[in-house]
Nucleic acid binder design. Sequence first.
DNA 1: GATGCGCATATGTCTGGACAAATACAACAT
DNA 2: ATGTTGTATTTGTCCAGACATATGCGCATC
Lengths: 258, 258
Amino acid sequence: MTAREERPAADRAGEGLPRYAQIQKILEERLIEGVYPIGSLMPPELELAVEFNSSRTTIREALRYLRERGYVERRQGVGTRVISATSRSTFFQSFGSLEELFQVAVETYYVVMDVKTVVLDQETAELVGGLAGEDWILVNGVRWTEPGGKPICYIQSYIPKRFEHVVDQLPDHEGPFFSLLERHADGPIEEAVQEIRALPMPPEFSRQLGLKPGAWSLQLLRRYVTEGGVLIASFNWHPADQMAYVMHIHRTREAAAD
Amino acid sequence: MTAREERPAADRAGEGLPRYAQIQKILEERLIEGVYPIGSLMPPELELAVEFNSSRTTIREALRYLRERGYVERRQGVGTRVISATSRSTFFQSFGSLEELFQVAVETYYVVMDVKTVVLDQETAELVGGLAGEDWILVNGVRWTEPGGKPICYIQSYIPKRFEHVVDQLPDHEGPFFSLLERHADGPIEEAVQEIRALPMPPEFSRQLGLKPGAWSLQLLRRYVTEGGVLIASFNWHPADQMAYVMHIHRTREAAAD
DNA sequence: GATGCGCATATGTCTGGACAAATACAACAT
DNA sequence: ATGTTGTATTTGTCCAGACATATGCGCATC
């Protein structure tokens, strides 16, 4: 191991790249080639600093890039774990907002039917992201094309009990519930999960929507998750013959992932 | 200006946030409120370091966040210029491949049932992206969990006639049809469209899948589009009680939206 | 007025260092 | 076998400092 030379200020010897960029390229190639297998831990920062004859800060900059590209996750006390051998994203679907994502028509009209506290059974708990036996608030409502127009879907919204002081505001709230709840949460929505199923439309919902008995439904279940847990989980029951869920997926340029 | 106190190691006094996060919140609010107008330069790093009684590194971390969120651009020799008063945060769902996107299980087993040329009627033409009256090749098949296992779904694939010289290879092809067809196309797949519906399972498909009469389906229609037009459009008919389509959507940092 | 030079300024890169926080694991007690 | 404690390890936060690079501006010269 050669002795450390004098300070290599902004070392751009090779390809004119900063040192951290050179290191990140080398490490990226190693990840792609499987030198560091998926699931394994990469060498610690200090070891890499020795290998590349650089400061820990320079190594951290390179590893930051790898994390941003989705190759690794980094955890204090654990190390840098390889989670992928490929760079993130050749196709992506991007949305400016969750409303756009979930194709919530802005100009529709939502009416709260009733609000009650329920105890989650096992199956519902699994779907909404709570625990069986917990109290949650259930808000039932119908979304309409416009006041006095046609019903679009029946909506069951499950909200954790800790937001019961917010629930009074829901009927008068303009916009989706999750945006109101997010303001009272202990952090922003980090993830949304949507599940789509074909299910028989429950008879009581059929009646509300003016459907014949035996009708079916495209059911959309959406969970909005903050660091503190599920913010709200809603089941949208759309009449099967009135709903198609459409997704457009575009190929990225490389820039999109950077 | 008070003297610098002893080292405030990982100062999380207020909300338990690291110092750089507290600073970035303050700066973000100033940006939103227009304290730093769009087009203007924010105070230099060293000035902010004095104001917040922090090191330049801590300030840089906060400014990095603002850059990632799209509020500012930073240029050596110039400074930190405000380019937006709103965050560029978006949600996105990204995929390494179209297989992953469409949740095609890699280890399933696909059997071609028959291949024929059909003339598109108006409705089918609209769905597959062709014209009524056109000749297209229809490949019918069933996807199985494994040879001799359980049927997963019935698949109708519509392929433009210009690929009829490729169709012979489809039964023996490992992997999704679109990847084989893409190789014979005049350009890469630029976009994929997926539509999801709840529909009655056609009786002939019910029989193939071992379902009772009157069964329903979660139907997934996928179109793969190149510059030269639709490459292939497939209808996947999943038994309703055996399929949920699940999407996980994450909040980006600046990277994916760029 | 146009061009070039020198200097000041501001961010970019990199070093070394210190302490905090989170995790993993071994040893020990029950 | 299970739980607790202590220690080692690793990343996260933050500091101070130094030099490089890019930009902007003022001034001198043609």
